[in-house]
Simulated assay, not measured.
Amino acid sequence: MQVIVVSNSPSKRTEYFVEAGRNLQAEVCFLTYEELFNCLPSLRQAVVKLEPWVSSETDFLRYALLSEEYKETLQRLDKIILPGDVYFLNPPHALLQALDKKETKQILSANDLSVTPMLDTPRSFEELVQALSDYGRGCFLKPRYGSGAGGIMAIRYQPRQKKWVVYTTLQKVDGIIHNTKRIHRLTKEQDILPLAEAVMHTGAILEEWIPKEQLQGENYDLRVVCGEEEIDYVVVRCSKGSITNLHLNNNARLWSELSLSEDVRQRIYLLCRKAVRTLGLQYAGVDVLIERGTDTPYIIEVNGQGDHIYQDMYAHNSIYTRQIRTIKKKYDHADR
């Protein structure tokens, strides 16, 4: 049984996945999506792991078009009938569900899993102002599709004073809206309006702002890498602000550093494993918020390709190593 990892081009995540296979003396190789389409009809005895497209595009609207192209690729793959001994690790239809934050929340909520609540999605800046005024608390405006904090806007608005405070990765430079790798603080409506409109143009969701638990004065949430039955890794993502993604120069802390009860930890484990199964995934990275003062866990989103944790890759590469061991054990047995 060979294992194939697929993306549009090689990256650190595909490189370390192949390296984990090499260290296990397992047959693991990389293919592009074009190569995968060409070889699928004749492929035999293989497990295929689909990774997201790699892109250095910073133009937010152009990147949204690339994301659409990637979704179309998954939709094409979903229509292909695989030979009986070829499997997707995470099937394309499940990855498409996880890419759609709105659909993900609806599916999980329907299965009694707690998620960060959504408000009605605004279609214009005027509707956004009205929604924020009616709600009376801070909100997150996010692209409906995608991950990595790209395009996220943490918004506080005081309608009486017409005061804004927005934290976002977006920045408008020379008429082009760029997604950057740092957080910008905006307070002027004329600066905020074009960014919010761009996010809504690509499809957006509006989420309630739930206060996050803190560790040593910093807000934190969790990236829980897990399968249907096991937890592989938990990284604590800490930030002075509300956006905690680690590639934005935020701090990664250890799961063992948190003073959470064993009951809360087990509730988080159960919540994440059930979310993975409910979405039809085998592996995922589940982002979990713990509400300050109640220790109630909420799923923020589920990333069907969120099993890459650089702190682990560069140290022990244990996530990919265990994943490949599990794949070989499960599918070698299935084909006997």
Rank of each mutant, 00 (worst) to 15 (best):
K329F: 10
V302H: 11
H333P: 01
Y320H: 14
G306Y: 06
Q323T: 15
I327F: 13
R292I: 00
R325E: 15
E291K: 11
T294L: 03
D307V: 12
I324R: 08
N303S: 06
P297V: 02
T326I: 11
D335C: 09
T294I: 11
N317A: 10
I300T: 03
D335Y: 03
D295S: 08
K330L: 14
D295P: 01
E291G: 10
D295K: 03
R325N: 15
V302K: 10
K328R: 03
Y310R: 05
V302G: 10
I309H: 03
I319Q: 11
P297C: 05
Q305F: 14
T321V: 10
D295L: 03
R292H: 08
Y310A: 12
A315E: 01
H308E: 06
L289H: 03
K330P: 05
E301V: 13
T294H: 03
K329N: 14
D332A: 11
H316V: 03
Y320R: 06
D312V: 04
Q323N: 08
R322I: 09
I299M: 13
I300Y: 07
Q311C: 03
T326E: 15
E301F: 07
I324Q: 05
G306A: 07
A315L: 00
L289S: 06
D295V: 08
G306Q: 06
P297K: 05
G306K: 05
I327C: 12
I324L: 10
I327G: 09
N303L: 06
A315P: 00
K329S: 14
T296Y: 03
K328Q: 04
E291T: 07
D332F: 09
I299P: 12
Q305S: 15
Y310W: 06
T294M: 06
Y314G: 00
L289I: 15
S318Y: 04
Q305W: 10
V288N: 09
R292P: 01
S318D: 10
E301Y: 07
I324K: 06
G306V: 15
I299T: 08
Y310K: 04
V302E: 13
Y298E: 05
I309M: 09
V302A: 11
Y314K: 07
I290V: 14
M313Y: 05
D312F: 01
Y310P: 02
D312W: 01
I309D: 04
K329D: 14
Y331V: 01
Q323A: 13
A334Y: 13
I309P: 03
K330M: 12
P297T: 06
I324W: 14
A315K: 00
I324V: 07
T296I: 11
A334H: 13
N317R: 02
K328N: 00
V302L: 13
G306D: 04
E291Y: 05
I324G: 00
G304R: 02
T296G: 02
D332P: 01
